[in-house]
Nucleic acid binder design. Structure first.
Lengths: 348, 348
DNA sequence: GGAGGAGATGAGAGCGCTCTCAAATGAAGT
DNA sequence: ACTTCATTTGAGAGCGCTCTCATCTCCTCC
C-alpha cells in the first residue's frame, strides 16, 4: 500500500512495475479480456502492491460516464426523513442501483439557493442521470435537467409542458393511478353508507395530490351521490401535523361529517389524533381512509383502511427505467403507471 | 442555449466565440479577477449564449478537488429514515456545507457488498472528504478511508486503533459526553428515590451505546447506591421496536423495577408502549428517562425526561471540522466533545 | 522621451485515463 | 516454407480544464 495521503499511484506506475504498457494495465483493470493470463496476473499483483485505484475524474473525462446517478427530493430534510414514503421509495431505488453497481447520490433541495447549486451540480456532469421526486409545480429543476440533456426519470407525473417542442419527447415517469385509487377509496366509503365525506389533500401544486382530489370529486359525481361541498376539502400538506390541523378545520366547518379520505397515511394518522381528541369514535362516528399503505397505516389505532401503492416497486421501476435509458439512449421508453388497490382494515 | 443532449460546449468554444484565449475564459469563469471589465463582459455573454457549464471531471482532474463530501451512515435505509437523530444531524451538516458551496452526497451502507462499493467510491477521488457516523466496531470503512488518505470526520468516537502507528494522528470526531449524560440521567432517578433502575442500551458495538452503559454503571457505583444487577440491562438496538421488546424482557426478569433509563428517545417511546400495555403507570410505577431530546421526547405521553444533546449542532461542527481540514490540511485539529444536559419533564 | 514596473493576456504543458490503430506474435492452412 | 488471419500488445492522441510563465500593453516617473 502507498503512504496514506501521499501521491496516489497512477496507471503509469503500475505499468512500469509490471513491465507492460499503460494500455494493457487499463485492459486488466477494466475486465481483463484479451490479455494473456500470465500478464494479467502480473498486472494484478502490481495493482495490489501499489494499492492502485483508478482516478475517477480522469476516467470519466474520457468515458463521459461517472457510474453515479442523483436522486433529488424536492423537500426539506425534515420531511424527507419523517415521511416513510421516501424511505420506501429510496430503498427500491437503492436496491436496483446497487445491483447495477451504480452509486446513488441523494440530494435534498431546501432553499432556492439549493436549486441553483443542484442545477449546477447536475449540469456539471457529476452524474449520468437523475431521479427526481416530490416536484412542485413551479420547480425549475426539470427544466434545468432537460436543458442540460441529463437523462431523468420522475417519480410522479411531472406538471411540466415540454419546452423543447419536440413531439413525443414527453418526460419519463413512474406513477400510480392516483385518480383511480382515490375513486376506490371514496366509493368504498359511499358503499358503507357514508354521506358526508371530507377529504384531506396534499399540496395541490403536486400532481399526485391534485389527481387524488380529482378522483375524490369524480367518485362523488354520480347520480346517487351526495352534493359536493367545498367545506369538505382541506389541505394537509402531506404531513401528520397538517392532517391533524386539517381534520380540526373540517370538523369545525362541518361538524356532522361522517367520513374522511386522507390522501396519505401520515395525514390520516394526524386526523386520527384530532378525531380522538374531539371524542369521535373511528369508524363508528367518522370513517377514515388513508393512502399509501405504509407502516403507519398498519400501526395506527385503529388500523387504517387505505389505498395501497407499491412504493418500493415504483422506486425499482424508476431506477430500472433510468438504467435502461443510460444503457441505450436511443430506444423510446414510456411512463409507467402502477395500479392502486384498496386495502380494507378497521378504520372505515 | 445549446441543443439538449448535443455535445456540450467547451472552454475552447467559449474562447473562440469571445475572441480570447482559453486561459482568459477560465479566469472569468473562476472569479474573473485580473481580467479587464470589458473582456470579462464579453466572455460572460459568450458563456450565456452557449450555455457553457464547466466539465467537472476535467476540472477536478487538474485541481484535485471535487467540491463534494460524502456523508456515510452505516445503517440500512430503514433505520436512517426512521430515526430522527440522523435527520437532525444531517440537517446541521447540510446547512454548513451549503454555506461553503459544497455538495453533500449521502451514502447508506446496507450490505457487505455496499461496503466494498463505497470503499471504491471513496478511494476513487469522487469526494474531497467524508463524514461517517453510526459506525459499528468491526466496520472496515474507517480503515479504508484512512488507507486512501481521505480526510474524514467521525460522528461519535470511533472504536478504532490507529493502524498507521503515527503518534497524535488519532481520528477526528465529534461526540457528546455520553458517559456524563448517562450519569446525570441515573443520578436524577436515584435522587427521586428510585432503587431498581433498569437500562435499555443501544448496540454495544457502538461506542456511544457502550459509553452510556458505562455511565449508568458508574452512577450506580456509589456507596449509597443499590447493588448492580445484570438482569436490569437489556439491548434495545436504538430502535423503537427494540425498546418495546427490551422493556418487556426487563419486566419479565425484574417485575418490581421502578425506573428505566432508555439510551435513546426512540427506545424510550417503545418502552412507554410496553409499560402502558402492561398497565404500569409512568412515572408513578416506573419512571422513564430517555436520551437525545429529539421530537419524540416532547411528543411522548407523558413527555419524556431526557438527556439533551445538540444533535444539529454536532452535525454543524462535524462539517466545519472537515471543511477546515480541507482548507488547511496541515494544521492539527482536535476532537470535539459537546456537553450533555438533563431535561426534566413528566416521565421521571 | 525612455526606463521601469504593474497589470492583462496568451501559449502550452500536463492532469490520468481510454481507445484507436498499427505492429508484433503465433497458430493454422496450403 | 509461405501466406493468412486471429490474438495480444504498445504507441500515441486526446478528453476539457487549470496554471505557470513569457509576452505584451500601457502607465508613471525621472
Amino acid at each position: 500500500m502507498s503512504v496514506p495521503g501521499g501521491p496516489r499511484p497512477t496507471l503509469e506506475a503500475v505499468a512500469a512495475l509490471a513491465g507492460v504498457s499503460r494500455a494493457t494495465v487499463s485492459r486488466v483493470v477494466n475486465g481483463g479480456t484479451g490479455v494473456r493470463t500470465e500478464i494479467r496476473e502480473k498486472v494484478r499483483r502490481a495493482v495490489d502492491e501499489l494499492g492502485y485505484v483508478p482516478n475517477s475524474a480522469a476516467r470519466s473525462l474520457v468515458t463521459r460516464r461517472t457510474g453515479a446517478v442523483a436522486v433529488i427530493i424536492a423537500e426539506p430534510e425534515t420531511r424527507v426523513f419523517s415521511d416513510p414514503f421516501f424511505a420506501q421509495q429510496l430503498r427500491g431505488i437503492g436496491r436496483e442501483l446497487a445491483a447495477a453497481d451504480t452509486q446513488l447520490l441523494l440530494l435534498m433541495v431546501e432553499s432556492d439557493r439549493d436549486h441553483e447549486r443542484i442545477g449546477r451540480y447536475l449540469a456539471g456532469g457529476h452524474v449520468d442521470g437523475a431521479l427526481m421526486f416530490s416536484l412542485h409545480r413551479a420547480d425549475p429543476l426539470p427544466a434545468m435537467a432537460g436543458a442540460s440533456g441529463l437523462p431523468t426519470v420522475f417519480g410522479g407525473r411531472p406538471d411540466w409542458t415540454d419546452t423543447t417542442g419536440r413531439a413525443g419527447a414527453g418526460p419519463l415517469y413512474v406513477d400510480t393511478d392516483n385518480r383511480d385509487g382515490a375513486r376506490q377509496a371514496v366509493r368504498h366509503l359511499l358503499s358503507r353508507g357514508r354521506r358526508r365525506i371530507a377529504v384531506i389533500t396534499g399540496p395541490l401544486d403536486q400532481t399526485s395530490a391534485q389527481d387524488r382530489l380529482d378522483g375524490y370529486r369524480e367518485a362523488l359525481d354520480g347520480p346517487d351521490a351526495p352534493a359536493a361541498d367545498e367545506r369538505l376539502v382541506a389541505d394537509g400538506g402531506f404531513t401528520a401535523e397538517g392532517g391533524e390541523q386539517a381534520m380540526a378545520a373540517l370538523l369545525d366547518a362541518v361538524p356532522d361529517l361522517d367520513a374522511v379520505f386522507a390522501c396519505s397515511d401520515l395525514m390520516a394518522t394526524g386526523a386520527l389524533r384530532t378525531l380522538r381528541a374531539r371524542g369521535r369514535r373511528v369508524p363508528q362516528d367518522v370513517a377514515v381512509v388513508g393512502y399509501d399503505d405504509l407502516a403507519p397505516a398498519a400501526w395506527a389505532d385503529p388500523p387504517l383502511t387505505t389505498v395501497r401503492q407499491d412504493v418500493e416497486g415504483m422506486g425499482r421501476i424508476m431506477a430500472r427505467l433510468l438504467l435502461r435509458r443510460l444503457a441505450a439512449p436511443g430506444i423510446p421508453l414510456s411512463p409507467v403507471i402502477t395500479p392502486a388497490e384498496l386495502v380494507v382494515r378497521e378504520s372505515g
